[in-house]
């Protein structure tokens, strides 16, 4: 077994009334790592079955949303004999802090892993205000 406390089961994403689904498909919440650094935040998500052409990343205000579509090869003319995991799309939403430089966000997908680099915006330089002696 990998991590001691790891639950191998896939988590189905919670639907809120806001997201009405148009695809008749299961939707899972991908497992993610979020790594916080001085210059950037990295979000890594396991999205097996997904490549760069099937991921949608949207940023609205400070809500970053990932939606990844899965089109698996379901073997033809075969019966399912062992069933341990379901197959479906992935969806997850993150709230970003205002510090992120939205223009420089980068996303890559490799071997079913989505990596998002969120560079931090340079902090507004502190303005020095001179205090003049009263006349």
């Amino acid at each position: 077994m990998a991590n001691d406390n790891l639950d191998a089961r896939k988590k189905e994403a919670v639907t809120t009334e806001r997201d009405e689904r148009t695809r008749e498909r299961r939707v899972y919440q991908p497992a993610v790592d979020i790594i916080e650094g001085r210059v950037q935040t990295t979000i890594i998500a396991d999205v097996p079955g997904v490549d760069e052409s099937s991921v949608d990343i949207t940023l609205e205000k400070n809500i970053l949303e990932i939606y990844a579509k899965v089109d698996p090869d379901i073997p033809q003319d075969m019966q399912l004999a062992v069933y341990e995991y379901g197959i479906g799309d992935y969806h997850r939403r993150f709230t970003l802090s205002d510090e992120i430089d939205r223009e420089r966000i980068q996303a890559t997908v490799k071997n079913g892993v989505l990596k998002l680099l969120l560079p931090k915006a340079e902090k507004a330089k502190t303005q020095k205000i001179e205090v003049k002696a009263g006349a």
């Binding site: 077994m1 396991d46 075969m78 019966q79 004999a81 995991y85 490799k110 071997n111």
Partner: peptide, 22 residues
């Protein structure tokens, strides 16, 4: 048990799939 697998079978062959990203 990790990793989760699905097994498909016909009379003379089987296909095992598992999701192990990265």
């Amino acid at each position: 048990d990790f990793p989760l697998v699905n097994v498909w079978a016909s009379a003379d062959k089987a296909v095992i799939t598992t999701e192990v990203a990265g």
